[in-house]
Amino acid sequence: MKVVYFLVAILALTSCVASAYDPSPLQDFCVALNDTKNAVFVNGKICKDPKLVKAEDFFRHVEPGNTSNPLGAQVTQVFVDQLPGLNTLGVSLARIDFAPKGLNPPHIHHRGTEILIVIEGTLYVGFVTSNQDNNRLFTKVLNKGDVFVFPIGLIHFQLNVGYGNAIAIAGLSSQSPGTITIANTLFNATPPISTEVLTKAFQVDKSTIAYLQKQFWYNNNN
């Protein structure tokens, strides 16, 4: 009978251990450091003394973005770096302004799902599934009041296909969802990614890659 109780206890302990997991990362990396005197970054932000918290910690005014740039679109982030009160709450948002034909180029949020609502204008939006799902493209034309979801970690984009300006608000399921713009990352890395890697990956010659690496890749996130 003691053996049975022992086995039950082991199974219960195993179940508890199996259910534990690390929290989702809130920054690109966090290198372990035993010397706490030189520790700087944590997975998230250090919390402010609750007695010192004020309403301004939860407030931010968002101005329209300047769309006078090569992409014709500007993303104004309201992540934890811009709004400290978001720390530990697991949400954030962004305002996206589009000039006519403006593009928020293909990018991913590696730490958060995005839900987008169109406030003004008409947007052509879409995302691409993973290799496992054969890279299927899902697209939709959105008008004022329409909502669309971009699953976490998948490449997605928004293009203004209307004749006037457009505005959208994006909600994200992380206080620091991260943004990786595909073209910028591949062709504007520091130091540059090996030409051999890029020519084989894109099935093009070296001159094409050299041309792309010389371009000015604008970052439309601020």
Rank of each mutant, 00 (worst) to 15 (best):
F187N: 00
T14R: 12
S68N: 15
K37W: 10
K140W: 06
L123V: 02
L212F: 13
I46D: 14
S24I: 05
T76Y: 11
P177I: 03
N221T: 11
V53D: 14
T195V: 09
G65Q: 02
A20C: 13
E196G: 10
N34F: 06
G145M: 06
P177Q: 06
F187G: 03
H156W: 00
H156A: 05
T36W: 08
V8W: 11
G153R: 02
K2C: 10
S15K: 09
N34V: 06
T67E: 06
G178V: 01
D22T: 08
I182T: 08
W217A: 04
V4K: 14
A99F: 04
L116P: 00
G102T: 01
M1K: 10
G126I: 05
L86P: 03
N34K: 13
A99I: 06
G121E: 01
Y21F: 13
I108D: 03
D133E: 15
L83V: 04
F157P: 08
Y218L: 05
L11Q: 06
Q213W: 04
W217N: 04
P70L: 08
S19A: 13
S68H: 14
L93R: 01
D205W: 03
V147A: 14
P192C: 08
N219E: 07
D97I: 04
F216P: 01
N222P: 10
Y163N: 15
G164Y: 02
I46N: 10
E63V: 08
T199A: 00
T190H: 10
Q175S: 07
Q158R: 05
Y5E: 13
D146G: 01
L159V: 11
